[in-house]
Design a protein around this nucleic acid. Structure first.
Lengths: 337, 337
DNA sequence: CTGAAAGCGCTTACAG
DNA sequence: CTGAAAGCGCTTACAG
């Protein structure tokens, strides 16, 4: 058996094979100044001896790992795989690698620790919900951190998200325009900035349009299918039956839709339902859910490029970007057939 | 602004603060032989000066990155997030980190390259579909590689999966036991070993039980919701209408179920439907899909521990483990109400 | 048990 | 343009 641990091929071996110094090999690697002929010989020698540069050595010298950290939560919500996919593509485009933490209690701290250990050059958080002590000191220290998806107003770092407030308003406009003015809201947990902002925008615009949201038609829970179902069931016991429902995310909306059907409520005839995120299931036949789409590709792209410039030393004030959301109209709100 | 690039605190600083040599600090870090009193002083000094060991330096010295690579494909299929979640937990339990590649054309090669660069100590592939040249030479070289979920008989490396063949047989048994003998199959792509094995086991057992699967009731496509829908639609144009349907995975089954309903076919009365994977959506009210569950936690745990022992130098012959699948009976096959 | 020293494989001033 | 050399921050024989 060969054993994979046999001696590594190093830049020194390449140098010997190419008849140059090790420094010249290194210059070829890092695009330094090298004569054309030397470069050619070095590249050929690399191929001949099967050379692959050792990243750990480079990382130690340069202080850069070429790797970013990504913290995702709740992979059971299909929105996060979508976001992870987009982040992965953006990271790859930037020529970097991605260490992923799936959120548990200790993940955020672990990811920030990884910056100090120089395992990653920076971290993208997709689900920051609060301003932890670790995050505070990491930012103090100037650690490159970008918040994606959720926003934390009190935190001084780059943040990229959907304009959730505008998204909520968009839905309010749409419902009122079509006379669906007995509106209800089933939201995610208030600790999630996304849910708060979507509700805020929805509520404000409804009020502006003269059809304020009734407090008894607002329910909050976790961002899950089950809580969507339960939310609708609870709503059905309220004094007023809504004719439109906006949910804090698609998972809630799909649960609510199933509960509505189970209760004999026809969608969209009796009840319009609108979600948020545009996860793949929303386009499924059985649901055909109207929803607000966030552009994860754009979001991830900006997040990574912000991170990259922070790593490169950009210390301008934090940037906060909100992308305009887009209403995707589908069958769950089709104007009566 | 502080700038995050200020000089690192090194083991030398700790040594100075603790009044010991740098070597002693290092011994404390790597659990070497150190007197109790020295250890105490060093640990205190680490805290005082805010020391965090530099991983790149350690990786260079030891030749181990403490990181494993994971290649996942198709995050839109909720099975993969499930698997990723389980792998993440297993990797964390092993005290390691995880670099993730979301599969594109070049990912497999990139992941194997990362082993040579010493960016990762080994790689878990969740969707190997063929024996590439890169994989071949990586294995020749003794690179630690584990295949999860899909299997490649001709490849000499550790492989962990559900016993898909047995899973298919399980479904055949179940259907025949309940007299649902006009069975159909909608499968994933034949290049996926999972789909082939599930069909093989299903087909064989049906034959053994005297109710061979009719070739015109077998359809194959991609592992997607849409192909499930289309598959069922095509099947409805066949000569024989099935009264039971086994799908290569849950996504296909959910698509097929929606198509069946759209065609006025009642599930389960007219048609039983069974999936594979037990993704979260299968338990949703609207589907309540009977399915075959693979234990991703167990699978991921074994995969990571195999990888860890390979990294540690274990060069015994490759291990191939198949976990017994479990039939989860739900409403899509409930014996007539 | 402990320290001085070598060295992991690179990058990058410094001379020439 | 190129080479000799220092050094990134650790781990680990080697002496004592």
């Amino acid at each position: 058996m060969a054993g994979y641990n046999r001696r590594m091929v190093t830049s020194r071996d390449v140098a010997r094979a190419a008849g140059v110094s090790q420094a010249t090999v290194s210059r070829v690697l890092s695009d330094g100044v090298v004569s054309e002929s030397a470069r050619r010989r070095v590249l050929a020698a690399m191929r001949d001896v099967g050379y692959v540069p050792n990243r750990a050595a480079r990382a130690m010298r340069t202080g850069r790992s070429g790797t970013v950290g990504v913290v995702v939560a709740d992979l059971e919500n299909p929105f996060y795989p979508l976001m992870l996919d987009a982040l992965s593509a953006a990271v790859e485009r930037a020529g970097l690698r991605m260490i992923v933490w799936v959120a548990t209690n200790s993940t955020n701290a672990a990811a920030l620790e990884a910056i100090r250990e120089r395992s990653v050059d920076g971290v993208v958080f997709t689900t920051a919900t609060e301003h932890s002590a670790e995050l505070h000191s990491a930012l103090e220290r100037g650690s490159p951190v970008v918040l994606v998806n959720r926003a934390l107003p009190e935190v001084a770092c780059d943040q990229v998200s959907s304009d959730n407030d505008a998204g909520g308003a968009l839905v309010a406009d749409y419902l009122v325009r079509h006379d669906r003015i007995r509106a209800a809201f089933i939201g995610g947990p208030p600790r999630a900035s996304t849910s708060r902002a979507r509700l805020r925008g929805f509520e404000r615009r409804l009020r502006e349009l003269g059809h304020p949201l009734r407090p008894d038609l607002v329910v909050e829970g976790e961002y899950t299918y089950d809580d969507g179902r339960r939310g609708l069931e609870r709503m059905l016991r309220a004094a007023v039956v809504p004719n439109a429902l906006f949910c804090g995310n698609d998972l809630l909306a799909l649960g609510a839709m199933d509960a509505a059907r189970a209760a004999g409520i026809r969608v969209p005839d009796d009840l319009w339902i609108v979600g948020y995120d545009d996860i793949p299931m929303s386009a499924w036949n059985a649901y055909d859910l109207t929803t607000v789409r966030q552009d994860v590709t754009e979001t991830a792209g900006l997040a990574v490029s912000l991170l990259v410039s922070r790593v490169a030393g950009d210390d301008r004030p934090p940037v906060r970007t909100q992308f305009a959301p887009q209403l995707i109209v589908r069958g769950s709100t089709r104007h009566s057939v």
